[in-house]
Amino acid sequence: MRIAILATAALLAAPAMAQAPTRQVSALSAPLAAYACGGCHGVGSTGSGPVVALAGRPEQEIVSAMKAFRANERPGTIMGRIARGYTDEEIAAIAAALSSWR
């Protein structure tokens, strides 16, 4: 399962590599950021107790939630503090990865 996850994310990241030949960025970059979510959301972000699962959720739902947390428009205990650290591009990459996980 995990192999498929990384491979998918790698394929997603591949076009970015092609567009930026001056700085070679590994395809693993986006999934590594997404792994951080698993620290609380469970292994593979499949949920941990009361902390919701993120794996397999629609990409747009994750992007909207993160942006709402970031704008302080959605209540949360720590997600606002977290979301404010990420750029639009990073949120998109993380959402794409989480969405592809099962």
């Binding site: 620290g39 609380c40 469970g42």
Partner: peptide, 19 residues
């Protein structure tokens, strides 16, 4: 918030040790 953070602390501990 304090109550939830205590609950989420437990969830964090379980998640990271599971990993």
């Amino acid at each position: 918030q304090r109550r939830l953070e205590a609950v989420y602390a437990d969830a964090w501990y379980k998640a990271i040790t599971d990993y």
